[in-house]
């Protein structure tokens, strides 16, 4: 690790992993910039805890469970710069569609109605779900929003390369909600 290497983390809350996949879709650009940063925490690497201070954290997904909220709070403490990556993080998107129903109904449909054995709602070893799914900025200050479902790889690359060079990114023309 050189002194100038930026420490980056990516976090996956309630999303579909599509935003992480779009990050990998940078393809050969990934090879070009891989030496500029150190991925210190991410579903794509093996480290199991988020370092106390990280330069940049990209967060995919909305906040749906107590665990998500805890991850997000930790991330905010640790991140110099925090990015809401993709529509789920920016607006709540598809995960928040369950907000029009009561959580107990949603759980009952999945675990009690449509099963042929052991109808029961999971409660052990799994985090409690929040009544409503919310975007990141409902809980913490977000430094940059990158919409898109997922944001295209080119927009993620533009954002990353600007931030890696210490510039203010402007991705407003590179991505939009939905596509």
């Amino acid at each position: 690790m050189t002194i100038n290497t930026l420490q980056i983390a990516t976090i996956w809350l309630d999303g579909c992993s599509g935003c992480h996949m779009s990050l990998l879709d940078m393809d050969e650009h990934l090879e070009k910039i891989a030496h500029l940063f150190d991925m210190v925490y991410s579903p794509l690497v093996d480290s199991t805890s988020l370092p106390a201070s990280v330069d940049l954290i990209l967060i995919e997904g909305a906040v749906s469970s107590e665990k998500d909220l805890e991850h997000l709070m930790n991330a905010r403490k640790s991140a110099a710069c925090l990015v809401a990556l993709g529509d789920c993080a920016v607006t709540g998107n598809v995960p928040s569609m369950r907000n029009s129903f009561s959580l107990s109904d949603v759980l009952a449909t999945s675990y009690q109605k449509d099963v042929s054995a052991n109808p029961q709602i999971p409660t052990g070893f799994v985090p409690a779900l929040l009544e409503h799914v919310t975007p990141l900025h409902a809980h913490v200050q977000v430094d940059h929003f990158l919409p898109g479902c997922p944001p295209p790889a080119s927009a993620i690359f533009a954002l990353l390369s600007h931030l890696l060079q210490g510039k203010q990114p402007d991705v407003s023309k590179l991505s939009r909600f939905g596509s």
Binding site: C16, G18, S65, N93, P95, V106, S110, P150
Partner: peptide
Amino acid sequence: TQFRGFETFCQGRPFAEMISLVERICGI
């Protein structure tokens, strides 16, 4: 440790909308 609830919130949607909704189950 994650739960989404597609079985519930898809109720009431037009069936042709399902394809773009269920794609969001998984980015892979």
